[in-house]
Simulated assay, not measured.
Amino acid sequence: MTDSTAPRTALVTGGSGGIGRAVVTRLVDDGLAVGVHYAGNRATAESLVEEITTAGGQAIAVGGDVADEHAVAAAFDAVESAFGGIDVVVNTAGIMVLGSIAEYDLDRFDQIVRTNLRGAFVVSQQAARRVRDGGAIINFSTSVTRTQLPRYGPYVATKAAVEGLTPILARELRGRDITVNSVAPGPTATPLFFDGNTEQTVQALTAATPLERLGRPEDIAETVSHLAGPARWVNGQTVFVNGGLA
Rank of each mutant, 00 (worst) to 15 (best):
E80V: 15
T190N: 07
A93T: 04
P7A: 13
E51Y: 03
P210V: 06
L192R: 12
V183S: 02
V79E: 03
R174M: 13
V113H: 08
Q125M: 07
L165C: 06
G244Y: 01
V72L: 07
G84H: 09
G85T: 01
G14W: 07
S141M: 02
V234K: 06
I178F: 12
I137F: 04
F121D: 00
Q237P: 00
D77P: 04
R232L: 04
P210G: 10
T223D: 00
A128C: 08
T209W: 09
L205W: 14
T179S: 11
T13C: 10
T188N: 09
R213Y: 11
L165N: 03
T13A: 10
R151F: 12
G244K: 02
E212A: 14
S124L: 09
P230M: 02
F193G: 03
G18Q: 03
V28Y: 11
E80L: 04
I101Q: 11
L214F: 05
I137Y: 01
T142I: 00
V49Y: 11
P191F: 06
G243R: 01
T179I: 03
R132V: 12
S124G: 15
H226A: 14
A59H: 13
R132E: 12
V224H: 02
W233R: 12
L106M: 14
G196V: 04
T5A: 15
F109Y: 15
F83H: 07
L245F: 05
L245C: 04
V97G: 00
A10D: 07
A78P: 01
T53H: 03
L173C: 09
A33G: 13
R232T: 14
T238H: 01
V113W: 13
D177H: 14
R8T: 08
L169E: 08
H37I: 07
V72E: 03
G134A: 05
L106R: 15
E172S: 11
D3P: 10
T25H: 01
T188L: 04
G85Y: 00
E69M: 05
V12Q: 08
S4Y: 15
R213W: 10
D68P: 01
T188P: 04
I95K: 04
P150H: 11
